[in-house]
């Protein structure tokens, strides 16, 4: 009697559990927003697009001074020139990037049903190039960063609007990115969330740890440390390396999925790239 009962109830229970375990992206986003809202009662959530400078008035003042003469301006100009130059077959980036081009940053990264994977804007640019008979660009190189800087600049003020469509592959990519974000890595045993959620707002030595909301809105970034404009995945590489994990390749599947998750968390926030950082 009891046995049959438990046999019947178990599958139902397991179903119920797995249904609650996988929260929808929208539930995740709302929970994360609520977390930061509670953690920083005096700070508008939208302010986190400025990263650590949203948390520290002194550093913010220094940074605003730096932004008076934006160190990424040359990259924007260079990117504009490259963007306008016809590709090998006479077509242009604008033809390839769709009607709204160059104002497209808000839609990336996106799920590509053809490949079943997440496509970043950098990858899109390279497939435009290859379709037009050009060589792909180095994902960490200055040419790609310049193009990205121009598109980011043109997309300023748009609000992040990415989707996780009703396709199990898209949902799996989102879940994978979320897992990456919360997974401890490296000899020092940190997840992204250890620093940007658990310790957010604390100082690591002299550095204030920024919130993950807004982490994707302002790329590419001119960093004083890099002395050049660089992409988001370069920052992933650095954040992985500093905990003594072997970093992944820029544009690897895991980093693209991570970018997908992180960008979804910033849905609705204003694009403000390129930006400068210490």
């Amino acid at each position: 009697m009891l046995r049959t009962f438990s046999h019947r109830i178990y599958p139902a229970l397991i179903l119920a559990v797995s249904a609650t375990a996988i929260a929808s992206p929208e539930e995740d986003r709302n929970a994360l927003r609520a977390f930061y809202e509670q953690r920083f009662p005096g700070i508008e959530l939208d302010a986190h697009v400025d990263g650590a400078y949203a948390l520290d008035a002194d550093k913010r003042d220094q940074w605003l001074e730096m932004e008076d003469f934006p160190p990424y301006e040359i990259a924007i100009d260079d990117g504009a020139d490259r963007y306008d130059e016809p590709l090998a077959d006479g077509s242009s980036y604008a033809d390839c990037l769709g009607n709204e081009a160059p104002v497209v940053k808000q839609y990336y990264p996106r799920f590509d049903p053809a490949s079943g994977e997440i496509e970043t804007l950098e990858q899109r640019i390279n497939s435009c190039r290859e379709a037009a008979g050009e060589e792909p660009l180095d994902y960490l190189g200055s040419e790609m960063s310049s193009l990205m800087a121009f598109i980011a600049y043109e997309s300023r003020g748009e609000r992040v609007a990415i989707e996780v469509p009703d396709d199990p592959r898209a949902q799996a990519a989102y879940e994978d990115g979320k897992e990456f974000f919360y997974t401890r890595r490296g000899q020092l045993n940190f997840a992204c969330s250890s620093c940007h959620v658990t310790m957010v707002g604390n100082a690591l030595r002299a550095e204030r740890l920024s919130a993950s909301l807004g982490h994707t809105t302002h790329w590419p970034v001119y960093r004083l440390k890099w002395k050049e404009v660089g992409p988001l995945h370069k920052r992933f590489i650095e954040c992985n390396s500093q905990v003594r994990a072997v970093p992944l390749e820029a544009q690897s599947e895991s980093y693209r999925n991570l970018e997908y998750f992180l960008t979804y968390m910033s849905n609705g926030m204003e694009l403000n790239g390129p930006a400068s950082r210490k």
Partner: peptide, 24 residues
Amino acid sequence: LTAEQSLKQAQDEKDAWQARVVGR
């Protein structure tokens, strides 16, 4: 030691990460 611990971390984290998800 570091190799073993890195692999152990990989195995442990397969489930452990879920406990950290905000809002869970």
